[in-house]
């Protein structure tokens, strides 16, 4: 932001007043919009019921000008985190971990499309996930088990809060199965 440039010091012609006026309008508009949205002047919190009528422009209404309310909630200790590990039972009784890697999926896709599908029982998605594993490993999965593990976060780091428990245990659905078990 410093104008002192060493070396060549050529200057373009002085900016005419009209162009400075136009630029001033842009400056005021951009800063005004950013100020109004960043500090939520037109989007007071829902809890303040008396200000409800001023709640007229909440993000992203004025995008690209928005507030930056991210990761704002606080959590008091102890905080509990729950993990779900799907396990496949093979025809010979062996157990295999149906991880994202084992299914060849990205971690977020695996949680959304496979783990959540087991929890909410979306049979078609579950069957598709198992089929992916079988195609990659050459092993047939006959039964599914979803293990729930709960951890507590605190000053001592991560501590297992409870013994793992089986949240769901089901036979592998047919490929054409519908949802709703």
């Amino acid at each position: 932001m410093t104008p002192d440039v060493p070396g060549e010091g050529a200057r373009t012609e002085a900016a005419p007043r009209s162009s400075r006026r136009a630029a001033s309008c842009v400056i005021v508009a951009v800063l005004g919009l950013q100020f109004v949205t960043a500090f939520k002047l037109l989007c007071p919190p829902r809890q303040l019921e008396s200000l409800a009528r001023f709640r007229v422009l909440c993000s992203p209404a004025l995008w690209p000008f928005t507030d930056y309310q991210m990761y704002g909630a606080a959590y008091a200790p102890p905080v509990e985190v729950t993990i779900h590990d799907p396990v496949g039972v093979l025809a010979d009784g062996r157990e295999v971990a149906l991880t994202a890697d084992a299914l060849g999926m990205r971690s977020d896709e695996w949680r959304r499309l496979f783990v959540d599908a087991i929890r909410r029982w979306r049979a078609e998605r579950v069957a598709a996930g198992v089929r992916r594993y079988e195609e990659r490993s050459g092993e047939e999965v006959v039964r599914l088990r979803l293990i729930e593990r709960r951890f507590e976060l605190g000053e001592g780091g991560t501590i297992e809060a409870a013994a793992p428990r089986v949240e769901r245990e089901v036979d592998v659905p047919d490929a054409g199965a519908g949802g709703g078990r």
Binding site: M1, V5, G7, E8, A10, R11, T12, A14, A23, I27
Partner: peptide
């Protein structure tokens, strides 16, 4: 390359 202009500062500042 070292030329200056009255409209070169405000976009970066904004």
């Amino acid at each position: 390359l070292g030329a200056t202009d009255a409209h070169a500062r405000w976009p970066r500042l904004v």
